[in-house]
Design a protein around this nucleic acid. Sequence first.
DNA 1: CATGAATGAGAGTTCATTCAT
DNA 2: TATGAATGAACTCTCATTCAT
Lengths: 180, 180, 180, 180
Amino acid sequence: MKAALSLFAERGYDATTVPTIADKAQVGAGTIYRYFENKEVLVNSLFQECVRLLSATLLTNMPNNDRTMREQFHHIFVQMSQFANHHDKALAFIDSHSSARYLDESSVTMFQDFLDILRDFIERGKQQQIICPMPSDVLIAIVYGALIKLFKVIKTGVVEETPDLLLAAEECCWNAVRVH
Amino acid sequence: MKAALSLFAERGYDATTVPTIADKAQVGAGTIYRYFENKEVLVNSLFQECVRLLSATLLTNMPNNDRTMREQFHHIFVQMSQFANHHDKALAFIDSHSSARYLDESSVTMFQDFLDILRDFIERGKQQQIICPMPSDVLIAIVYGALIKLFKVIKTGVVEETPDLLLAAEECCWNAVRVH
Amino acid sequence: MKAALSLFAERGYDATTVPTIADKAQVGAGTIYRYFENKEVLVNSLFQECVRLLSATLLTNMPNNDRTMREQFHHIFVQMSQFANHHDKALAFIDSHSSARYLDESSVTMFQDFLDILRDFIERGKQQQIICPMPSDVLIAIVYGALIKLFKVIKTGVVEETPDLLLAAEECCWNAVRVH
Amino acid sequence: MKAALSLFAERGYDATTVPTIADKAQVGAGTIYRYFENKEVLVNSLFQECVRLLSATLLTNMPNNDRTMREQFHHIFVQMSQFANHHDKALAFIDSHSSARYLDESSVTMFQDFLDILRDFIERGKQQQIICPMPSDVLIAIVYGALIKLFKVIKTGVVEETPDLLLAAEECCWNAVRVH
DNA sequence: CATGAATGAGAGTTCATTCAT
DNA sequence: TATGAATGAACTCTCATTCAT
């Protein structure tokens, strides 16, 4: 799984061969087929595991609703950046594969479940008139899109990640969706 | 080119075969090789043409500096959404291929030139203390990431594109980067 | 024809493409097909023309039978070396294509006719008990094989062609077949 | 290797397809690529193995220098004819591919090493004034060319190979290079 | 008559998958 | 259970040949 994640994230699904995964995992190519029916099953298993972990990370210690929306947003942002730091391959893999033709229903559902975490937050914010009264999908797209590209640019090292930078970026993203 | 764009945007480079492109273009497979040395040259030519068009669109009627930053941002947003509407395949193709391993130097440069248009805008805004004093690459990532995912969600039809929606989304993106 | 000869001699039949011949001849690829039904017809025409020229060269001023066998051999050797000098491509082409699968009956016959010139000489020599009493095909093989490789090594420039060298080589070849 | 040798010898490199080799070898086409990086590597491996075998054959029981040059020549001729009999495909393959454009440096060197065996013999003979005082390359060309064509004509069956014939042919070749 | 763009069959090569070991 | 050699379908790319111009 680790070998596959690394290769899928870096080269994409089609450019990654099963023997290459086997080599990196230091097992025989046939061994992979003892655990995964085929390459598609493997990529779906991996995708689901990554999304599950991402969702779990996001939900860890999620402040309940008596905290302000801003505090909740801070939690989301912090958890996402933690995930981006500890599982950079996973985040890249999720984003680049989340609308792939070979994802099965289960994978798609699981990714939607992840987005639903953001959706829930957004919708509670809208109810409290703290977040802009716009379609949730649009707001999710804006904040998710911003986050993904942000962590990608941090990971490639073109800017240095500092607590201040993160706080400032968080504020930017929050400003994008809050009511002014 | 049109056939290739459509297929590359939908399936990605590796999953698109040359015969499939030829079929869609209603020519023989060999014909493609009269115009492009190989598949990589084709994808690079296509990428460059798309990026060139995107940059040209962005620069069309670009208001000069005596207009406010907000007005300039409005222009960028409108032009991007026009491009997204008229060339939805091209935008999807550019985003999904902009860090591909098979892009040549020329393609990478051309994409950087596009980003530089955003960078110029961002940096002028920072000088005027209208845009947040953060690394330009971070601000670009936020606004570019938001835009890309936004137009993607609009294109897939999960939300209906209306002038009001666009104006609201533009305001969100502007709020993300402006000084408060 | 000249372009084809040059390319066939250097690269061989299969490695020479019709468009390449056309380019070298500075005509369109289609033009070749106005004069030759297909590539095989072309190579056969060329082969026959080359062999015809070789035979003609060999027979030019051929001394009649009142000259000694040695004098006749001198003539053969001199004419062959002239041909090798003036038509080096043709000689290389003939040798490397003389047992090709795509030669038609007419080409094969014409090549046999050329060998028959040598055979006639050999057999007259055997009758006069000046040339070894061995199967003509064997004697032809020896002298023809020696000549071909000899002119090849001269043409590649590893040894310089001088009148003395040629005379000495001629003597070698003659010694190979004469009665001792 | 056996299948490839047979096909390369009969049809040449370009006219031999990898699937054809695979068919003849009764393996899948892909299997060949597990053992040879590509067709060129295959032909070079094969060429080197054939030349190695030819050189080894020539050197087997090579009489040392206290034997006469004539005896040494006898050995060379006999070993060559043995090789021609036991490995007729190999000899044809070596000769028709020894100046091919796709031979790598290693193959060329190995073929030169083979020729050097003949060269050594020739040069020792020249020192002893038993072999004609001519450039070694010329003498090699004459005797090697004669031998190749001789064994080719024998192999095609136009003449029957008998001990007497072989002895007579050997004498011819010896006469070609010895001092008279 | 000359052309060269277009073609598609077939080449070399790769790789997901199988299965005897 | 783990393997990796073997496979052949499918890929990228070439080129002999055609035919509208």
